[in-house]
Nucleic acid binder design. Sequence first.
DNA 1: TTCTAATCTAATTCA
DNA 2: TGAATTAGATTAGT
Lengths: 195, 195
Amino acid sequence: MAGTSLSTADTARAQTPQKVASFVETKTTQCSFSIESILGLEQKKDGIPVAKPHRPWMDTCNNLGINLCLPIPVISYEIPLFHLNPYSVPEESVLECEKYLSATERLSYKRELSWYRGRRPRTAFTRNQIEVLENVFRVNAYPGIDVREELAQKLDLDEDRIQIWFQNRRAKLKRSHRESQFLMVKNTFPANMID
Amino acid sequence: MAGTSLSTADTARAQTPQKVASFVETKTTQCSFSIESILGLEQKKDGIPVAKPHRPWMDTCNNLGINLCLPIPVISYEIPLFHLNPYSVPEESVLECEKYLSATERLSYKRELSWYRGRRPRTAFTRNQIEVLENVFRVNAYPGIDVREELAQKLDLDEDRIQIWFQNRRAKLKRSHRESQFLMVKNTFPANMID
DNA sequence: TTCTAATCTAATTCA
DNA sequence: TGAATTAGATTAGT
């Protein structure tokens, strides 16, 4: 059944199982490592190609009996099956079905599913919320708990969301600064030095 | 240059001067502004309607003198003009020039244009590179920095490209899983229930 | 058109 | 607190 999910491109690539060796041979010049060493590094898990998914939040949630009240019976019936192995299972496979839901149902369903997955549903800030947050950010990129609380109340958001938003906003600012600095340096030199 | 980190989208959002009241009054240490004053500062710029082409990457690039050494003289002449207002520039008009370029010139020009726009030129992985990446992916979908670095060296790619490739590959896997699950659900129930 | 590289952001982990 | 990283959603190039 899983095979049907693979695109033709994937299927085509899957037809060439053991050709890594040939590649390595052609690249003998700088071969101080072997693919085998990499492959050997991670032992597979029942054929599941995931060694270290780094998803700690799954640990605390994969034993909960959630989704008892999903809006659609069909789906509430399926989800417990997904529970068995979160890694090999498409957690959002059901999202495909959303097409057949009303807007309200879809939202509520998405929320349930996200919670089931152990991940906070992605917050969709409104235009106005972003606007206020940006304006505050221009003046103070490190608002204290009091400001955050006040913003939370005014914008009808959890204080946690405010906190996270500012963290990411600062990260974004830093990143852009870094990049512009980098480009600036780059541009002080002729193109043939960088290209 | 902090201002340049804000996209035009941010500017565009600044059009709902709402009352967020004076929450700052409760806090006196960090910031002595009121939200109103902050919002008041951002009453749109001049009369510019600010259309939004959604090019966030421009944030870090629209103030830099790039393309000082374009490979094609004709175009290197043109691009600095675009610089003045990247958002109001009709890219199609630039593409017009392509008709007068050879294939090689066109390619190199496109690359420069991408670079100018602040987007990295799309990397074209070779067959061998894809093959190795796929083989590693089957065993470990979440390679650490060490494996990525090693792959980068072996495949003559930036580590960043490796990282991005695995991200996109995981997304693709998820997508295909999602689809197969959807088909499974669909096949489990009569068509009239979901279609 | 399809596939996918590149980008952006919300969320999370860890030092 | 911030850097690194993940998922997920888009954008856009081939």
